[in-house]
Design a protein around this nucleic acid. Structure first.
Lengths: 328, 328
DNA sequence: CTGAAAGCGCTTACAG
DNA sequence: CTGAAAGCGCTTACAG
C-alpha cells in the first residue's frame, strides 16, 4: 500500500539495505551483479525513494520554495517559467505558492514551507512587505524578486522609477504634450515607483492620474475616465501591459486613433504586447529572465554563500506603433 | 545554523520533546503554562517544523505534485491558479513542475517527486501520453487533466471533438460558407480532437487546414497563409485563443473586416479574449475550474478512495463580435 | 565490496 | 498532564 521501501528491495535481493541504497544511488562501491539485481527489483516494484527521509538525513531538500503574490495572467506565467527552466537545469524542485494577498499570509506560507525547502524565492510587491524581512526564517537563504524588502536582502528588481521617467521622456519626444497616467494599485510598491517616476517629470503641474489595479478591465475603465476629461490627454502611460491592452480597446471603441490622437505606452512587455492593435510600445523588463536570474542568484547563495547585494534591472524601451511619431 | 529543532525547544523549556511537540501542534493534553512557554520559545527561536521528518512519520506530505507540459501564457496561468486556490483552501502544498516536453521526461519528473507528494495532478496532452499510464507510480493517486491517459484513470477533460463541431455549426449559422481551420500541433491530443470535430462536419470535401503550434505567432502566420488561398475562407476556426489573437491581427493588417469578411472563432476563452478587437467568439472551457476541479477530484480520491470515472466538460460557445451575424 | 549501527527530526501509543 | 521509547525511510562513517 505505502509503496516499496529500501527494506523491501534489500530483502528481495538478499543484501543489506546499505548495499541497496548504494546501488540505487549509483555509487561504485557495489558489486556489479548486486547493483544489477537491485536495480531490476527496484524497477519491478516501481520503487521511488522517499524524499522526506532522504532530505531528513542529508539535510538538503533540493527544493526551492517560491512565493508569489498572485498567479495571474501572462506576467506570472512568464516569471514561473523562468524559475522553472532554471530550476530544472539544476535538478531542483519547486514548491510553489501563489496568491497570497498580504505579508501576513506570506509569512504563514513560509513557515509552512519550513523544512521542505533549501531556500526561498519571494515576490511580495506589497508596500508593507519590508515587514517581512523581520520574520523571515533564520538560516533560510532568501532572494526577493521585484519586492520591497530590507536592502540587506539579496534581490533582483526593476528600476520602476526610471521606467516611469523613460515613458514620459519617450512620449514627449513623440510630440505628446498632455500626458496622463493609469497607475497600478497604491499598495503595490512597484506601481508606486512607476507613478513616482512619471510624476517626477512634472514640476508643479499635476497631470491626470487614474488608479487601476493592473487588470485589463481597470485599464479599460481608466481610459474611459481620461477621455471624459475636459482637456483630453494625447499620451497615456499605463503602469503595466494588461492595463494598456484594456486602454487600447477603450480608445478604439471611442473612435480615437492610436497613436495619432493618443499615444500609449505600457510596462512589462508581456508576450502578447506585440499582438495588440496597434502593437504596444512598452518598457521591457525581461520577465522570464527575472525569474531565471532570481533562481540563479538563490542557487549561488546556497552554494557559495556569496554576499553580493541586489541587482537592479533597467527596463528597456521597446518602441512599437502605439506611440510611434505623431503629427502634433 | 541548521535551524532550531524540537529538541532545542524542549531543552530550553525544560520539558520532553513529546510535550514540546504536543504544544506546537496545539493538542490539548498539555498544561497551559507548558504550552505557553513552548510557544514563546518557538517564536523566539523562529522554529519551523521539519516537513520531511513530519511526513516521514505521518506518511502524509500534505503536498500535491503538479505536472504540466509547459508553463506558457494565460492558459497555464489560469490552470495553476485554479489548482492553487483549491489547494490553499485545504492547506495543501503544491510541488510544481512545468515544461516537460514529452512523456519520458514526465516520467522522470514523477519519480523525482516520489515520497514528496500524496498524489499527482498530471496534464500531459501528448498523443503518446497513454504510455504514461503504464509507468505511473503504484499506490500514488493520480488525476489527469486534459490528457490522453488510460480510460481507467480518474480524469477531467474537455469535449474537444464536440467543441470543433460546435464551432463549425456556429460559423455556418452566421452565414459562413467557406470554412478553414488553424489547428494546434499534431502531436497534441486535444488539437487532434478539435480538428477531428471540425472535419467531421465536412463529408467528402477537404476544407483548408493550417497547422499551428498554439502560439500567437503561428496563428498570425496561419491567417496569412489562408488569405493567400485562391478561394479565401469566410470563416476561420482557430484551435485556441492565442492563435485566434494572432489571426485577428493578421486579418486587420490585411484590411480584412471581422466578422463581415471573415468571421473568427477561438477555443479556451482566456481572460484576454474579451479584450481583443473585435472581442473574440470562443469556446469556453472554464480553465480555472479545470484546475480547481482536478485538484478536488484528487483530494476526493485521497480521502474517500472513491472510484468514479472521469468527467468530461462540454465547452460552451461564447458569442462575441468576431463572429456575430454577417450579411452574406 | 559489504553489513550492522547510528542518527536525521518528528509523532504517537504506552505506561505512569 | 508527562516522559521514555519506538519507529518512519534513508544515508554514511565505521569496521571488516
Amino acid at each position: 500500500m505505502a509503496g516499496a521501501t529500501l527494506k523491501d528491495i534489500a530483502r528481495e535481493a538478499n543484501v543489506s539495505i546499505a548495499s541497496a541504497s548504494r546501488a540505487i544511488n549509483g555509487l561504485d562501491n557495489v558489486a556489479d551483479d548486486v547493483k544489477q539485481r537491485v536495480l531490476e527489483i527496484a524497477k519491478r516494484l516501481r520503487y521511488v525513494p522517499h524524499g522526506g527521509a532522504r532530505s531528513l538525513v542529508m539535510s538538503r531538500t533540493n527544493t526551492i520554495g517560491v512565493l508569489l503574490p498572485d498567479i495571474y495572467g501572462e506576467f506570472f506565467a512568464e516569471i514561473i517559467r523562468g524559475i522553472d527552466v532554471a530550476a530544472r537545469a539544476r535538478g531542483l524542485h519547486l514548491l510553489v505558492s501563489g496568491s497570497h494577498g498580504n505579508p501576513d499570509e506570506a509569512l504563514r506560507i513560509m513557515s509552512a514551507m519550513g523544512g521542505r525547502v533549501d531556500g526561498l524565492l519571494v515576490m511580495s510587491p506589497f508596500v508593507e512587505s519590508h515587514d517581512l524581512a523581520a520574520v523571515l526564517p533564520l538560516n533560510l537563504p532568501v532572494v526577493t524578486i521585484a519586492s520591497r524588502i530590507g536592502a540587506d536582502q539579496r534581490s533582483i528588481s526593476v528600476d520602476n522609477f526610471g521606467g516611469g521617467v523613460t515613458a514620459v521622456a519617450h512620449l514627449r519626444a513623440q510630440g505628446c504634450r498632455r500626458l496622463a497616467h493609469i497607475s497600478g494599485p497604491s499598495r503595490n510598491f512597484e506601481a508606486q515607483e512607476r507613478r513616482r517616476g512619471f510624476l517626477s517629470m512634472f514640476d508643479g503641474a499635476t497631470p491626470p492620474l487614474y488608479e487601476g489595479d493592473f487588470t485589463e478591465e481597470s485599464g479599460y475603465r481608466g481610459a474611459k475616465a481620461l477621455l471624459a476629461l475636459n482637456e483630453r490627454p494625447d499620451g497615456i502611460f499605463a503602469a503595466n501591459d494588461m492595463m494598456a491592452v484594456g486602454c487600447l480597446l477603450a480608445l478604439r471603441e471611442a473612435g480615437v486613433n492610436v497613436p495619432e490622437d493618443i499615444a500609449v505606452v505600457g510596462f512589462d512587455d508581456i508576450p502578447i504586447a506585440r499582438f495588440t492593435s496597434p502593437p504596444l510600445t512598452t518598457l521591457r523588463v525581461g520577465i522570464f529572465d527575472l525569474g531565471r536570474r532570481g533562481l540563479e542568484m538563490l542557487v549561488a547563495t546556497l552554494e557559495g554563500g556569496e554576499t553580493g547585494e541586489g541587482i537592479i534591472v533597467a527596463p528597456e524601451l521597446v518602441m512599437r506603433d502605439s506611440s510611434r511619431h505623431k503629427s502634433g
